[in-house]
Design a protein around this nucleic acid. Sequence first.
RNA 1: GGGUCGUUAGCUCAGUCGGUAGAGCAGCGGGCUUUUAACCCGUUGGUCCUGGGUUCGAGCCCCAGACGGCCCA
Length: 500
Amino acid sequence: MSEVDRESDVAAHRRRKLAARRELGDAYPNAFRREDTAADLHARHGDAAKDALEAASVRAVVAGRIMLRRVMGKASFLTLEDPSGRIQCYLRRNEVGAETYEEFKDLWDIGDIVGVEGALMKTNRGELTVQASAVHLLAKSLKPLPEKYHGLVDQETRYRQRYLDLMVNEESREVFRVRARLTASMRRFFDERGYLEVETPMMHPIPGGATARPFVTHHNSLGVDLYLRVAPELYLKRLVIGGFERVYEINRCFRNEGLSPRHNPEFTTVEFYQAFADYRDLMDLTEELLGSLLDEIAGGRVLRFGDDDLDFRQFARRTMSEAVGEATGKTPSEVADPEALAALARGLNIAVEPHWQWGRLLTEVFEARVEESLVQPTFITQYPAEVSPLARRSAADPRLTDRFELFVAGREVANGFSELNDPDEQAERFRAQAALKSRGDLEAMHFDQDFLTALEYGMPPTAGEGIGVDRLAMLLTNRTTIRDVVLFPQMRPAGSEEAT
RNA sequence: GGGUCGUUAGCUCAGUCGGUAGAGCAGCGGGCUUUUAACCCGUUGGUCCUGGGUUCGAGCCCCAGACGGCCCA
């Protein structure tokens, strides 16, 4: 590349400026200390009158990234951004000195990290401003920032280079602040109720706790394959058996499935278990939890999401059979009939497999016809045992379990049930799953003898639940794509990238 | 996996009928001591995603592929 081409490149200009800065001394000093944040200065002095503020000669020491630059002959304005917000700085040649002012004009760019100290003033237009007496270039930015008005719009770049998105898009920063408040608020909720926060293994010798395809990895010195967990359930139950009767875990699960606006291969759940409780207690607890989260984060229990006002003041409760009957116009006896359900399923273009029994058919029809229509918070209860290998059977009907899922805005948000604590029946259910697996069902569960051994020591009557944290974050931030609420979403590798 | 839309300057985007690529911002040079998406004058910058094909001629049409968005499975 010729010298002329390099000269025309933005990055080359900035490298030249960095080189010039190095000549003048340490180009990446770490001695400057911020004393004031933008938001704090605005809060304390934003309302002050111009004359009074300037008479008081309030000293301020700020630091941040240059977002805007307005250079005039002998005086300039900078818009500095720190984590709290923006503050304007005013540099006058007379005040900072000719040499410094020229250095600023020649070597500083939008994107640089700088420190400014000086007295607070108000401009004629009333904007609070730090009138610089001294300025410091703290870190040179060698890459041009996205356009200052439109910001960064390209979704691919926003996900692949999240730091750029965060740098220039305040809405994006706010999403992740809300997400952090969400998990903090959850922890408070469970801590206050005597739940112990625990961390269980991410690498499982036998994947379990959900019907899903796992990622496989390998432990070299043990010489065994391990699976990234699809759910923490079986370990949390071991803790209940051990005597930690209330536990919760907020962490990642991994499922080896496709990428979509609703699925990231790694995602976050909160799972919690409570001895001497059943699924009804957990539905009540879930209403309480979501209500308190909304109070704290959204400031009320009605949440605007897309075109809907989601009302969390009351949650509907309906059995899966009822919901399917309503959606399809079938009578209870038709919904209870496997043949009728199979016909219904075929009519919905579902690839019905011969070994599916009533429970699986009902669930498939439910997913195809009902799920999406559950906009307002709705608990669907009485899931079939066939699709609930870890849940306790209903006393009233052995085909069903004491299980629920919560749906909001057409999405599954929570899944909970009274736990199956009979080791012999659990062994039976594992055998049924293993049979599915040998038929080629990659999502079916493994037979987990180690977990059965734990159950044989006796698990108290228990209920447990998992809630999708990403999905809650989507609801609270009005996003329809999980990638908008995951800091670094999984992307297909971009191929050979820039070498410089 | 299928369908569909998109990919043009660092960023945000135009690009007519197929006739050889533009704007704003950023950058560079100059001017300007209360600007604020500063402004004024001048100006550099392109693998039009990649590879084929059709054509006298392709950013534009056709085929294949890559990556992304959305929908479906």
